[in-house]
Amino acid sequence: MRVLIDPRRPASPGGRVAAADLVGLYAPPARRRWVRSNMVTTLDGSATGADGRSGSVNTPADHRVFAVLRDHADAVLVGAGTVRDEGYTRVRPTRGSPVPAALVAVTRSGRVPEGLRTPTEGRGAGLLVTCASAGDAALARARSVLGEESVLVCGDAEVDLADALDRLAERGLRHVLLEGGPSLLGTALAAGVVDEMALTLAPVVVGGGDFPRIVGGPPLAAPDGVALRPHLLLEESGTMLGLWRVRS
């Protein structure tokens, strides 16, 4: 894998890095809370392949970086729809991180996606983040499935992501990896809670069809959007992988 941009290492572009170096390159800052999103997109801007799943446009380099990002995460934050569509289950431990990240599903309805019902043995915690408008009946059902402490009610009519992230941090889940989908990422960017975006540009095009982009929802901070600066850029076999930090 080649390094194209790394402000921390002013070596000449094109320097090679081994797989073991990725751990340091992707290490989050040591601070109270750090929220990093991770998405993949094709060259023509699609967040999924023709089958409607992001996994069909992943590459070997992307898989390696994905594993490193998971190793650094205390919690994986995902929209409940993405948990269902992408077949998420609770996170298994890895060699890089023997303590598995918690899987945190976000839903306004309060419905518990099947992926959170995975048996807990040998896997990370399963948490549900929802809001008061889900209603007492839905909240009671969620608590009966996951347990009282595993259902976080954050916000009234909509999920308050800032509150949710504060409450996760109080539990020691400070480094949060937001894995989508596009709607949740758009909401998080609009709320100003994303510190950094990890993005893989897959060397493929999918052509026609109404494929999603990596960020959904209404325009962000019109007219200029959310400004970011490049922090890291790597390349392997045509796959581009990078980190962009949100400008404060």
Rank of each mutant, 00 (worst) to 15 (best):
M1A: 09
L4H: 14
R8G: 15
R9V: 14
R9C: 12
A11V: 15
S12F: 15
G15I: 09
G15D: 10
A18D: 09
D21K: 13
V23Y: 14
V23S: 12
P28C: 14
P28Y: 13
P29G: 15
R32V: 11
R32S: 14
R33C: 08
R36L: 10
V40M: 01
T42K: 00
D44E: 12
S46I: 03
S46E: 03
A50F: 06
R53F: 05
T59W: 07
P60W: 10
R64N: 08
A67G: 09
V68G: 02
D71H: 04
D71L: 06
A73H: 03
A73P: 02
D74K: 04
A75N: 08
V78L: 04
A80Q: 01
G81D: 05
V83L: 02
G87N: 12
T89C: 14
R90Q: 08
R92A: 04
R92L: 04
R95Y: 14
P98N: 15
A102E: 01
A105L: 05
V106Q: 03
S109H: 13
S109N: 13
G110V: 01
P113T: 10
E114V: 08
L116T: 04
L116P: 01
P119Q: 07
E121L: 04
E121Y: 03
L128H: 08
C131K: 04
G135E: 06
G135H: 09
G135A: 06
A137G: 13
A138K: 10
A138G: 11
L146D: 05
L146P: 00
E148F: 08
E148W: 11
E149A: 10
E149M: 14
E149G: 12
V153E: 10
C154A: 09
G155C: 12
D160V: 10
L161K: 11
D166H: 14
R167T: 05
A169L: 10
H175P: 00
V176W: 00
V176T: 10
L178G: 01
E179N: 02
G180W: 00
G181L: 00
P182E: 01
L184Q: 06
L185W: 07
L185M: 06
G186M: 09
G186L: 07
L189N: 01
L189G: 02
V194F: 09
V194H: 06
D195A: 14
D195L: 14
D195C: 13
E196F: 02
M197S: 00
A198W: 01
T200Q: 01
P203Y: 04
G207A: 15
V215P: 05
P223W: 15
D224F: 03
G225L: 07
G225V: 04
V226P: 00
A227I: 15
L228Y: 03
P230D: 04
H231M: 11
L234H: 05
G238V: 06
T239H: 03
M240R: 09
L241D: 01
G242Y: 02
R247T: 07
